[in-house]
Protein backbone atom coordinates (compact mmCIF):
# COMPACT_ATOMS: atom_id res chain seq x y z
CA UNK A 1 0.00 0.00 0.00
CA UNK A 2 1.32 3.43 -0.96
CA UNK A 3 0.36 6.34 1.32
CA UNK A 4 1.29 9.92 0.39
CA UNK A 5 1.51 12.58 3.08
CA UNK A 6 0.91 16.11 1.81
CA UNK A 7 -0.47 19.39 3.13
CA UNK A 8 -0.52 22.38 0.84
CA UNK A 9 0.96 24.72 3.44
CA UNK A 10 4.50 24.00 4.61
CA UNK A 11 5.30 23.44 8.26
CA UNK A 12 2.04 21.73 9.17
CA UNK A 13 3.69 18.45 10.15
CA UNK A 14 4.07 16.23 7.06
CA UNK A 15 7.43 14.91 8.19
CA UNK A 16 6.23 14.47 11.80
CA UNK A 17 3.36 12.26 10.59
CA UNK A 18 5.40 10.48 7.89
CA UNK A 19 8.35 9.37 10.01
CA UNK A 20 6.19 8.27 12.92
CA UNK A 21 3.74 6.41 10.71
CA UNK A 22 6.60 4.68 8.88
CA UNK A 23 8.07 3.68 12.25
CA UNK A 24 4.75 2.35 13.54
CA UNK A 25 4.02 0.21 10.49
CA UNK A 26 5.34 -3.29 9.86
CA UNK A 27 7.14 -4.01 6.62
CA UNK A 28 7.51 -0.28 5.89
CA UNK A 29 9.43 1.82 3.40
CA UNK A 30 9.90 5.59 3.76
CA UNK A 31 10.59 7.89 0.79
CA UNK A 32 11.43 11.56 1.35
CA UNK A 33 10.09 13.24 -1.81
CA UNK A 34 10.70 16.73 -0.42
CA UNK A 35 13.92 16.77 -2.41
CA UNK A 36 14.62 20.49 -1.97
CA UNK A 37 14.83 20.08 1.78
CA UNK A 38 14.66 16.43 2.81
CA UNK A 39 14.73 16.06 6.59
CA UNK A 40 13.04 12.76 7.43
CA UNK A 41 16.43 11.09 7.93
CA UNK A 42 17.08 13.41 10.90
CA UNK A 43 14.38 11.51 12.78
CA UNK A 44 14.73 8.02 11.30
CA UNK A 45 18.55 8.07 11.60
CA UNK A 46 19.13 5.27 9.08
CA UNK A 47 22.55 3.93 8.21
CA UNK A 48 23.29 5.08 4.65
CA UNK A 49 23.96 1.99 2.54
CA UNK A 50 23.73 3.34 -1.01
CA UNK A 51 23.97 6.44 -3.14
CA UNK A 52 23.19 7.05 -6.81
CA UNK A 53 23.31 10.09 -9.07
CA UNK A 54 20.22 11.54 -10.76
CA UNK A 55 20.98 12.75 -14.27
CA UNK A 56 18.86 14.53 -16.84
CA UNK A 57 19.36 14.97 -20.59
CA UNK A 58 20.18 18.38 -22.02
CA UNK A 59 20.68 19.26 -25.70
CA UNK A 60 24.13 19.80 -27.19
CA UNK A 61 24.47 21.50 -30.53
CA UNK A 62 26.89 20.22 -33.17
CA UNK A 63 28.02 23.59 -34.57
CA UNK A 64 29.35 22.01 -37.77
CA UNK A 65 25.94 20.55 -38.63
CA UNK A 66 23.75 23.40 -37.28
CA UNK A 67 22.00 25.43 -40.03
CA UNK A 68 21.04 28.23 -37.59
CA UNK A 69 17.45 27.89 -38.83
CA UNK A 70 16.02 28.56 -35.37
CA UNK A 71 13.45 25.75 -35.50
CA UNK A 72 14.63 24.34 -32.18
CA UNK A 73 14.27 27.79 -30.57
CA UNK A 74 10.70 28.14 -31.87
CA UNK A 75 9.72 24.63 -30.81
CA UNK A 76 11.00 24.84 -27.24
CA UNK A 77 8.05 25.38 -24.87
CA UNK A 78 10.40 26.27 -22.01
CA UNK A 79 12.53 28.93 -23.75
CA UNK A 80 15.66 26.89 -23.08
CA UNK A 81 17.29 27.80 -26.43
CA UNK A 82 18.14 31.06 -28.20
CA UNK A 83 19.57 31.90 -31.61
CA UNK A 84 22.19 34.63 -31.42
CA UNK A 85 24.20 35.71 -34.45
CA UNK A 86 23.81 32.37 -36.19
CA UNK A 87 24.67 30.36 -33.10
CA UNK A 88 22.29 28.41 -30.82
CA UNK A 89 22.80 29.01 -27.09
CA UNK A 90 21.32 26.51 -24.62
CA UNK A 91 20.11 27.14 -21.06
CA UNK A 92 20.41 23.76 -19.28
CA UNK A 93 18.70 24.85 -16.05
CA UNK A 94 15.58 25.93 -17.93
CA UNK A 95 15.50 22.70 -20.01
CA UNK A 96 12.83 20.09 -19.11
CA UNK A 97 14.54 17.32 -21.15
CA UNK A 98 11.51 16.84 -23.40
CA UNK A 99 13.61 16.16 -26.51
CA UNK A 100 11.47 18.29 -28.86
CA UNK A 101 14.52 20.19 -30.16
CA UNK A 102 16.06 16.91 -31.33
CA UNK A 103 12.89 15.96 -33.19
CA UNK A 104 12.45 19.25 -35.04
CA UNK A 105 16.09 19.79 -36.05
CA UNK A 106 16.22 19.30 -39.85
CA UNK A 107 20.00 18.79 -39.81
CA UNK A 108 20.20 16.27 -36.94
CA UNK A 109 22.60 18.69 -35.31
CA UNK A 110 21.29 18.21 -31.77
CA UNK A 111 22.45 15.46 -29.44
CA UNK A 112 21.97 14.93 -25.72
CA UNK A 113 24.32 14.87 -22.80
CA UNK A 114 23.76 13.87 -19.17
CA UNK A 115 23.86 16.44 -16.42
CA UNK A 116 23.74 15.52 -12.74
CA UNK A 117 21.12 17.46 -10.77
CA UNK A 118 21.09 15.55 -7.49
CA UNK A 119 21.36 12.21 -5.72
CA UNK A 120 19.27 9.50 -4.10
CA UNK A 121 20.39 7.92 -0.84
CA UNK A 122 19.27 4.62 0.61
CA UNK A 123 19.29 4.02 4.35
CA UNK A 124 18.35 1.19 6.69
CA UNK A 125 17.10 1.32 10.25
CA UNK A 126 16.14 -2.14 11.46
CA UNK A 127 13.44 -3.45 9.15
CA UNK A 128 12.62 0.06 7.85
CA UNK A 129 14.06 0.90 4.42
CA UNK A 130 14.45 4.63 3.75
CA UNK A 131 15.24 6.62 0.63
CA UNK A 132 15.71 10.34 0.19
CA UNK A 133 16.19 12.50 -2.89
CA UNK A 134 18.48 15.51 -2.72
CA UNK A 135 18.30 18.20 -5.38
CA UNK A 136 21.54 20.12 -5.86
CA UNK A 137 21.45 23.70 -4.63
CA UNK A 138 20.67 26.07 -7.52
CA UNK A 139 18.79 23.48 -9.59
CA UNK A 140 15.22 24.62 -10.23
CA UNK A 141 13.51 21.39 -11.39
CA UNK A 142 12.77 18.69 -8.77
CA UNK A 143 10.55 16.30 -10.73
CA UNK A 144 13.31 14.09 -12.29
CA UNK A 145 14.60 13.27 -8.78
CA UNK A 146 11.10 12.42 -7.55
CA UNK A 147 10.49 10.17 -10.57
CA UNK A 148 13.73 8.25 -10.03
CA UNK A 149 13.05 8.05 -6.28
CA UNK A 150 9.63 6.52 -6.89
CA UNK A 151 11.22 3.66 -8.82
CA UNK A 152 12.38 2.47 -5.36
CA UNK A 153 8.79 1.77 -4.31
CA UNK A 154 8.30 -1.87 -3.42
CA UNK A 155 4.56 -2.53 -3.91
CA UNK A 156 4.71 -5.45 -1.47
CA UNK A 157 5.52 -3.08 1.37
CA UNK A 158 3.76 -0.29 3.25
CA UNK A 159 5.25 2.74 1.55
CA UNK A 160 5.08 6.24 3.06
CA UNK A 161 5.81 9.13 0.68
CA UNK A 162 6.75 12.30 2.56
CA UNK A 163 5.76 14.91 -0.05
CA UNK A 164 6.95 18.48 -0.65
CA UNK A 165 4.71 21.39 0.37
CA UNK A 166 2.53 23.15 -2.19
CA UNK A 167 0.35 21.58 -4.87
CA UNK A 168 2.39 22.01 -8.05
CA UNK A 169 4.34 19.59 -10.31
CA UNK A 170 6.52 18.10 -7.59
CA UNK A 171 3.49 17.24 -5.44
CA UNK A 172 1.45 15.93 -8.38
CA UNK A 173 4.35 13.67 -9.40
CA UNK A 174 4.86 12.50 -5.81
CA UNK A 175 1.26 11.45 -5.12
CA UNK A 176 0.51 9.98 -8.57
CA UNK A 177 -0.17 6.25 -8.21
CA UNK A 178 -0.77 6.40 -4.44
CA UNK A 179 -3.52 4.30 -2.88
CA UNK A 180 -4.26 6.88 -0.20
CA UNK A 181 -3.42 10.49 0.61
CA UNK A 182 -3.01 11.77 4.15
CA UNK A 183 -3.50 15.53 4.30
CA UNK A 184 -1.84 17.15 7.30
CA UNK A 185 -3.13 20.55 8.32
CA UNK A 186 -3.32 23.03 11.18
CA UNK A 187 -6.23 25.15 12.45
CA UNK A 188 -5.06 28.46 10.98
CA UNK A 189 -6.54 30.45 8.06
CA UNK A 190 -3.34 29.83 6.08
CA UNK A 191 -3.38 26.09 6.80
CA UNK A 192 -7.07 25.90 5.92
CA UNK A 193 -6.64 27.88 2.70
CA UNK A 194 -3.89 25.61 1.38
CA UNK A 195 -5.67 22.49 2.64
CA UNK A 196 -8.59 23.27 0.34
CA UNK A 197 -6.20 23.46 -2.62
CA UNK A 198 -4.69 20.11 -1.64
CA UNK A 199 -8.20 18.60 -1.27
CA UNK A 200 -9.18 19.78 -4.74
CA UNK A 201 -5.95 18.26 -6.11
CA UNK A 202 -6.51 14.79 -4.61
CA UNK A 203 -10.17 14.90 -5.65
CA UNK A 204 -9.17 15.73 -9.23
CA UNK A 205 -6.66 12.88 -9.19
CA UNK A 206 -9.33 10.62 -7.70
CA UNK A 207 -7.20 9.37 -4.79
CA UNK A 208 -8.99 8.43 -1.53
CA UNK A 209 -7.90 10.73 1.28
CA UNK A 210 -8.32 11.75 4.90
CA UNK A 211 -7.10 14.53 7.15
CA UNK A 212 -4.89 14.63 10.23
CA UNK A 213 -5.22 17.82 12.25
CA UNK A 214 -1.92 18.87 13.79
CA UNK A 215 -1.41 21.63 16.39
CA UNK A 216 -5.04 21.17 17.42
CA UNK A 217 -6.33 23.68 19.99
CA UNK A 218 -9.59 23.90 21.90
CA UNK A 219 -11.95 26.42 20.34
CA UNK A 220 -10.23 26.42 16.94
CA UNK A 221 -12.79 24.51 14.91
CA UNK A 222 -12.05 25.73 11.39
CA UNK A 223 -10.78 22.33 10.16
CA UNK A 224 -13.27 20.18 12.08
CA UNK A 225 -16.18 22.21 10.72
CA UNK A 226 -14.80 21.92 7.20
CA UNK A 227 -14.40 18.13 7.46
CA UNK A 228 -17.99 17.79 8.68
CA UNK A 229 -19.35 20.01 5.94
CA UNK A 230 -17.36 18.29 3.19
CA UNK A 231 -17.84 14.79 4.69
CA UNK A 232 -14.08 14.19 4.81
CA UNK A 233 -12.60 11.60 7.18
CA UNK A 234 -10.80 13.31 10.05
CA UNK A 235 -8.46 10.51 11.03
CA UNK A 236 -6.88 12.01 14.10
CA UNK A 237 -5.73 15.13 15.90
CA UNK A 238 -2.39 15.96 17.52
CA UNK A 239 -2.48 18.67 20.19
CA UNK A 240 -0.56 21.94 20.01
CA UNK A 241 1.89 21.14 22.77
CA UNK A 242 5.29 22.26 23.91
CA UNK A 243 6.17 18.67 24.78
CA UNK A 244 5.70 17.48 21.19
CA UNK A 245 7.59 20.51 19.83
CA UNK A 246 10.50 19.70 22.17
CA UNK A 247 10.65 16.04 21.12
CA UNK A 248 10.54 17.06 17.45
CA UNK A 249 13.14 19.82 17.80
CA UNK A 250 15.54 17.31 19.36
CA UNK A 251 15.17 15.08 16.28
CA UNK A 252 13.27 12.33 18.10
CA UNK A 253 10.28 10.24 17.11
CA UNK A 254 7.00 10.48 19.04
CA UNK A 255 6.47 6.73 18.78
CA UNK A 256 9.57 6.04 20.89
CA UNK A 257 8.42 8.49 23.60
CA UNK A 258 5.71 6.41 25.21
CA UNK A 259 2.88 4.04 24.65
CA UNK A 260 0.26 6.66 23.77
CA UNK A 261 1.95 7.80 20.53
CA UNK A 262 2.80 4.28 19.48
CA UNK A 263 -0.92 3.47 19.73
CA UNK A 264 -1.92 6.72 18.02
CA UNK A 265 0.11 5.97 14.88
CA UNK A 266 -0.76 2.26 14.85
CA UNK A 267 -4.40 3.35 15.07
CA UNK A 268 -3.89 5.86 12.24
CA UNK A 269 -2.44 3.13 10.02
CA UNK A 270 -5.33 0.83 10.91
CA UNK A 271 -7.90 3.49 10.09
CA UNK A 272 -6.34 4.21 6.70
CA UNK A 273 -6.49 0.51 5.83
CA UNK A 274 -10.08 0.37 7.04
CA UNK A 275 -11.16 3.44 5.06
CA UNK A 276 -9.48 2.08 1.98
CA UNK A 277 -11.27 -1.23 2.45
Amino acid sequence: MIISVLSGKGGTGKTLISVNLASALDNAEYLDCDVEEPNGFIFLKPEIVGREAVKIKNPVIDVDKCLACGQCVKACQYNALALVKGKVITFPKICHSCGTCLLVCPAEAIGEQDREIGIIEKGLNGSLTCYQGKLNVGEPIAVPIIKQLKKKINPERNVILDCPPGSSCSVVNSIEGSHYCLLVTEPTPFGFHDLQIAVSLVRQMDIPFGIVLNKSQAGRNIIVDYCQKEKINLLGAIPFSQEIAKIYSEGNLLVTQGHYWKCFFADLAYRIQEVRG
Binding site: Y78, N79, A80, A82, V84, I94, P140
Partner: peptide, 18 residues
Protein backbone atom coordinates in the same frame (compact mmCIF):
# COMPACT_ATOMS: atom_id res chain seq x y z
CA UNK B 1 5.04 37.04 -26.03
CA UNK B 2 7.02 36.20 -22.89
CA UNK B 3 4.78 38.17 -20.54
CA UNK B 4 2.88 35.01 -19.56
CA UNK B 5 5.67 32.45 -20.09
CA UNK B 6 5.83 29.78 -17.38
CA UNK B 7 9.61 30.12 -17.35
CA UNK B 8 12.49 31.51 -19.37
CA UNK B 9 10.67 34.81 -19.98
CA UNK B 10 13.91 36.80 -20.17
CA UNK B 11 15.30 34.42 -22.79
CA UNK B 12 12.17 34.63 -24.92
CA UNK B 13 11.94 38.42 -24.65
CA UNK B 14 15.63 38.82 -25.57
CA UNK B 15 15.11 36.56 -28.59
CA UNK B 16 12.11 38.67 -29.65
CA UNK B 17 14.30 41.79 -29.50
CA UNK B 18 17.06 40.15 -31.57
Amino acid sequence: GAVNASGGAGIQAAQTLL
